[in-house]
């Protein structure tokens, strides 16, 4: 099964389970969790069921296209359901089965992995899922997001699409993955890895990035004060990615690192609070139309 077919199958499968199949958030993010459909949807009581691909950027993981397992950008497949359903694990296993994985053949395991995102003020409990020893997914029951307790609890599944595809296709390098019948992952993205690694590690303008971080922070807090959580949140995303770039440039010492993370967390908390209030004002409408 080629890479794009894996995405098609997952979309189809989760659509059948009642998920809204969404598109990626159109900004640089470190993980699918940063998509509004996860971070903001986890706030408050309104139900949600959604699935989407999210390109995720981690500048420090860049390896100039030389490492077969690490890249500065990769693709996550994210599933979010609130309240987390009783058969959530089985639904997940069903999706692997759809991708042709035979559980009496491969060794699939749920291995404890508690998740915490200091930048998002969020934590949850769950597992990484091992497929013959390789971590191919993460599975989390959110307990807190943006400093707010999750009631009800949101369940999150994050597939590492490249890892999963490498197992399914039996290849040893990301770049050898078949994207479709004609092109490999490397054909499409190798040059991007080389150039972006060079930019992230060597060329990104540090002074300007520091300046931008301050600007995004200021904008974010201002928008939260004006009860505009969505624009405010976009500024959080920009600030977070700017921080990641500075980190890749080794421009932030360990002392300052914790402080910068704290600044992003404060923005994220303000957004979560402001978003909760805005939904409350509307009477938490999402999902109510279903009843009618």
């Amino acid at each position: 099964m080629n890479f794009q077919n894996i995405i098609f199958e997952l979309n189809q499968y989760w659509a059948e389970q009642g998920c809204v199949v969404m598109q990626p958030y159109d900004m640089e993010v470190g993980a699918g969790t940063f998509h509004t459909a996860t971070f903001l949807a986890a706030v408050g009581p309104e139900p949600i069921a959604t699935a989407y691909v999210q390109p995720s950027r981690r500048p420090t993981d860049g390896r100039y296209g030389d490492n077969p397992n690490r890249t500065q950008r990769y693709f996550q497949y994210q599933v979010i359901i609130k309240p987390s359903p009783d058969d959530f694990q089985d639904l997940y296993l069903g999706s692997l089965k759809r991708l042709g994985i035979d559980f009496l053949n491969a060794d699939v395991r749920f291995v404890e992995d508690d998740w915490e995102s200091p930048t998002l003020g969020a934590w949850g409990l769950g597992w990484e899922i091992w497929l013959n020893g390789t971590e191919v997914s993460q599975f989390t029951y959110f307990q807190q997001v943006g400093g707010l307790n999750c009631r009800p609890v949101t369940g999150e599944i994050t597939y590492g699409l490249e890892r999963l595809a490498m197992y399914i296709q039996g290849v040893d390098s990301i770049y050898d993955l078949r994207w479709n019948q004609d092109y490999s992952y490397g054909d499409i993205y190798h040059q991007n890895e080389v150039e972006m690694s060079k930019y992230n590690f060597e060329l990104a303008d540090v002074d300007e990035l520091f300046h931008q971080f301050d600007f995004f922070e200021q904008q974010s807090l201002k928008m939260s004060e004006q009860d505009l959580p969505l624009p405010s949140y976009e500024m959080v995303l920009k600030a977070s990615h700017t921080f990641n770039l500075l980190d890749a440039r080794h421009a932030i010492s360990v002392t300052e690192r914790a402080r910068y993370i704290g600044r992003v967390r404060n923005m994220a908390k303000a957004v979560a609070q402001s978003y909760y209030e805005s939904r409350e004002k509307l009477g938490f409408p999402r999902g109510q139309s279903k009843e009618v």
Partner: peptide, 8 residues
């Protein structure tokens, strides 16, 4: 050490 909730 850490108890969790699930679903609703």
């Amino acid at each position: 050490p850490k108890r969790m909730r699930w679903g609703n």
